[in-house]
Design a protein around this nucleic acid. Sequence first.
RNA 1: GGGCGAUUAGCUCAGUCGGCUAGAGCACUGCCUUCACACGGCAGGGGUCGCUGGUUCGAGUCCAGUAUCGCCCACCA
Length: 887
Amino acid sequence: MSTDEPVSTTPTVPAKPALEGLEAKWGAVWEEQGTYRFDRDHTRAEIYSIDTPPPTVSGSLHVGHVFSYTHTDTIARFQRMRGKEVFYPMGWDDNGLPTERRVQNFYGVQCDPSLPYLDGFEPPFNGDVPTGKKKPQSVHISRRNFVELCDRLTAEDEIVFENLWRGLGLSVDWSMTYATIDERSQRVAQRAFLHNLQRGEAYQAEAPVLWDVDFKCAVAQAELDDREMPGAYHRIPFHRIAADGGVGDPIHIETTRPELLAACVALVAHPDDERYQPLFGTSVRTPLYGVEVEVRAHALADPEKGSGIAMICTFGDTTDVVWWREMQLPTRSIVGIDGRILRDTPDWILAAGPDAVTRYEELAGKTVKSAQGAVVEQLRATGELDGEPRPITHPVKFYEKGDRPLEIVTSRQWYLRNGGRDAELRDALLRRGTELAWHPPYMQARFTNWTEGLNGDWLVSRQRFFGVPFPVWYPVTADGEIDHDHPILADEARLPIDPSSDAPTGFDESQRGQPGGFAGDPDIMDTWATSSLTPQIATGWGEDPDLFAKTFPMDLRPQGHDIIRTWLFSTVLRSHLEHGSLPWTNTALSGWILDPDRKKMSKSQGNVVTPDHLLAEHGADAVRYWAANGRPGTDTAFDPGQMKVGRRLSIKLLNASKFALSLGDTGADTDRSFLLAADPSEITEPLDLAMITRLTALVDEATVAFEGYDYARALERTESFFWNFCDEYLELVKGRAYGAGGTVPATSAIASLRLALSVLLRLFAPFLPYVTEEVWSWWQPGSIHRSEWPSADKLRAVSIAGDPLVYEVASAVLGEVRKAKTEQKRSLRTEVARIVVHDTALRLDAFRAARADVTEAGRVNEVEVIAIDDHADATVVVTLVPPDADA
RNA sequence: GGGCGAUUAGCUCAGUCGGCUAGAGCACUGCCUUCACACGGCAGGGGUCGCUGGUUCGAGUCCAGUAUCGCCCACCA
């Protein structure tokens, strides 16, 4: 902004300033004037770019969002005032299961990727699907139609979200938004995947995966939840094979999953366990089925657990997978992708004889839960259940959004290398974690823990319908078999593509599924596979090279600490693989909002407070004030009381500003580019100089705090200074400013007040954008949010330095005068006949420098000062005029 | 089992390099119709800084141990 345009020196201060209506008023002005519009005509060094977390639009916003997005906004505003051109886009996360479910329920449709696209399709319902018994059959539609409906629905959600964000005063450039399912995001996700594939970082493998039987979908390590579940140890004998081939002595194992007996491939005990050492290498027979399995030794077997020997099934849990892989055991799966026991009797059971087959057939088609009951009955019948099942509670793996325990099934999936099976890559990622600046720093430990603990590559394919498809087809051989080993990759120029409705280059749609033709990959990518690319999406990677060069790597990733293992980690990974760099230089982790019972606020707990209500009741600045008090990384209690305090602060700013400006201008010709309405040569009085010295220290503190992403500290210091400024300084100079001591001292007071006001407003601007903009508009040109952040160096450069002790002693003596009046239950206007100040010589000198201000503010007639020793107690003896003389 | 964080007034929280009698706001008590603000102001009561040791002239702060709460992670038969 220009600094030499003429400035009106006559403030236009409303007679009765109020907070009501400021959001609407300034929201419109900011939009109209493009206050937060990003101007790319800057160098990379001049730009500060933020990788804003895209909120999930299918959910609803709650105070936790308001909390963390406010934190980011204070940083954005600070950087903007420091002269940075802030790149601050907003994304919407409409990818993934929550949106899929919402679209299904809202429109009464179901996605079926095998169906062709229907032009101009209209859904049967529009948010009015009957529920209960009247609930109609869903209409099945193609993936492309489904995605179109998603776009339609989320567009409405986005408007609601944007309005809330605008009301909160986020200084986002609303002309730059993206959605994680929009074409650009799909293109970026598919292009990045093709690059990963070409570099050998993505691969497909047939392997055991954690499988949710309800969603019929593979689940990645990062999406797991452990839940304490009731279970029971079943003590079951395996049978040694006697020399004559008959049944020998039993070996008891304890298992929580007896239904998997038919899937048993070995027994295992610890190599040092003397009880079982003689058995290693020998074979035993399983109960019920009599299948022969070997007894093996492995260090993971825990002699303390159960009977110290375990059965290995394919697959009961992830330990089974480790054993199976490391000891190269056979695969004997009996659980299908629907979570039921396979209907066809497996070969190894058929080979074990008619009894085995009969028993298996009793289980076939049952869910694992009911199969367990049936197996227990069979064991009882054969006398092979030793005692009764012993109930326990144990942690069981769940998909974080799922309702039934995960099963482990073998299937073909896409994986992305993430260091889980590759020490070199893992070390490189750990180094990236060290390069990144963490706020607060201790959060890096979570990244390190997670990265070091990875035990496999990232499973990125999902057997869902709604999401970014893999840009891949497979040839169909002459015999009609799909050849997964020779995928046909999409041309980058064609992206985004949907292999379920687009044909690969060189093929025709009629060849889909035909011998000699092609078949599309039916899966979609994990939502994190798209979300991990938000920096690339936002900065226009591969789409807008100029923008990308100016904004990537970005400066800041704000996010919750609970998704370090998912979002943060995967974003670092993708950037490392694609660009060989960090995606950003800083990350700021925000805490959670806890309800008064110290529980995390979440929809499922039913303890959510809606933000609209809060904004309406307390005002945006007040809500922001509460949020900004939450330090980085620290969980914060939801506290409407703090919002009331924020509101009080805003009102105080209005009134104190009104007062300071009502005293008039000094008429000085000032350098408005930084001091704004004060000529340093006019500031002459010791108390004024002392206040400005304190103010300079405040600017230093607030700036250092903000530079270290500690917005909460910057606010706390500024607020504390401001209240003291109102209670002490304003009261002390009031009389002088009105002219009690003559023109020169009055001018000094007025100039100091205006200088301090200008500085304080700007220090508050990142937190209280509305009220500071309002006050700024009374006497300053342009938006405060594009004004210059106060500079302590510039304040020092004009040599307006004073002795802070003057301020301190003057406040202390005035405090004693007030105390005397209060204790004697007299009005603060009561005149004081005489005060006697006992203090050290040094402090008395300081007092003398502000003596006139103190006597004026305290209505003191006569002052005596008495010097005392350094160790003696300082006192002020106050003698009020008699009560009858007061009238 | 491993890691990280927290524990300071009734409540929510500051307390930076170890340094005067441990601070703020809310709540509470009393007072003041004060010419910017009653959506205000002034003053006051309220704390063995989770516990136990140690280092130090001196510990809320540093070290060791311990308890409780929370979060993250773990191969949970």
